[in-house]
Design a protein around this nucleic acid. Structure first.
Lengths: 178, 178
DNA sequence: CAAAACCAACCAACTGGACGGTATGTTATC
DNA sequence: GATAACATACCGTCCAGTTGGTTGGTTTTG
């Protein structure tokens, strides 16, 4: 059992992005953040790309977990659309470090977003088949993503009270569709 | 009148981002793209930050121009919300190089987004004062941004026919609000 | 059982190239 | 002939990845 596992490294990388910005996400910085030498870091992730991939996969998994959690607890109060909207807002509140990884990744190599792209396509097709008004569902999903990315990119203030109101409104609109 | 003006350099920078990705937006690459030496490039923009700033300002101006154009031609068929939605979709169709600059900028230094942030705030307050249902207006605006960024980040296929349908639907919904 | 072989985890030092920026010219324009 | 518009050469730094180890634990083997 190793003291530093891959999860810890990913967390450290997220922390670096949050503190110093996506451009400063260097192997040295990540190594320093989790008290490892660069050599040790590269033992776990043989390239920087591999680390970024792992970060994205972790992010995807985290979001899926949040959505499943909500679906389980909320029960019948929301379908897949509501779950997705919820998970996006939950991601925003928890730690914005995670979605910033997305920025670092897309700056490094847009091809890294492929897993996200395919997952997004899956969600879309799910909505298309299960909603009375698929177009509206996609619009609501896009609105959630717009708010999400607006915050990640820093074009919206995070503490604006309008945020919570929009969140509620989105869930209400989603409830009418699912 | 110089043969190479700042506008041409900005276009070259956008081209580099489109062809090679945000991470490869280097001064050398931009200089090569517009047939200039790096020294010559740095004569026009004394730092990389200055270039990024100019790129963002150009993007903002371009979007404003598109919105104004639409407002003038569309006449009474749409208010400020419809104009904004239109300009976002127009930006997508023309050249996706421009919004990618945004990625390069935020990766380099999130503070560069300040002008975009303040402009976005202005648009928001405009909607808040002029719409019967400001919350819905913001949601529609967010949806447009979600679709916009979804395409920029490459998580949505650009040629999906659903895109145009969502565009029309958004404009219809906006017309009921303005 | 104990020595030998093996292996994952980790580290320090280094390499080679990229990159932002500077210094110092040279040429064209007014 | 002064200033803007370039070019050339160079510097220091950063950074991904390599090399060549060491260590501590596990497995294999005589």
């Amino acid at each position: 059992m190793s003291k530093i596992d891959k999860e810890a490294i990913i967390r450290a990388a997220e922390e670096v992005v949050r503190e110093k910005g996506a451009r400063k996400l260097t192997l040295d910085a990540v190594a320093a953040q989790c008290g490892l030498s660069k050599g040790g870091l590269l033992h776990h992730f043989r390239t920087k790309q591999a680390l970024l991939q792992a970060m994205l996969e972790s992010a995807i998994g985290c979001e899926a977990e949040l959505a499943a959690e909500y679906a389980a607890s909320g029960g019948e109060t929301g379908g897949p659309l509501a779950s997705r909207i919820h998970s996006m807002f939950a991601l925003m509140e928890d730690e914005e470090s995670l979605p910033r990884a997305l920025i670092a990744a897309v700056a490094e190599d847009p091809a890294l977003l492929e897993p996200i792209k395919s997952k997004e396509a899956k969600v879309r097709s799910e909505l298309l088949n299960n909603c009375s008004d698929p177009e509206m569902a996609l619009l609501l999903l896009s609105a959630a993503r717009g708010l999400f990315l607006g915050r990640v990119l820093g074009v919206m203030d995070s503490d604006d009270p309008i945020f919570e109101r929009l969140h509620k409104r989105l869930l209400k609109l989603a409830a009418d569709l699912d």
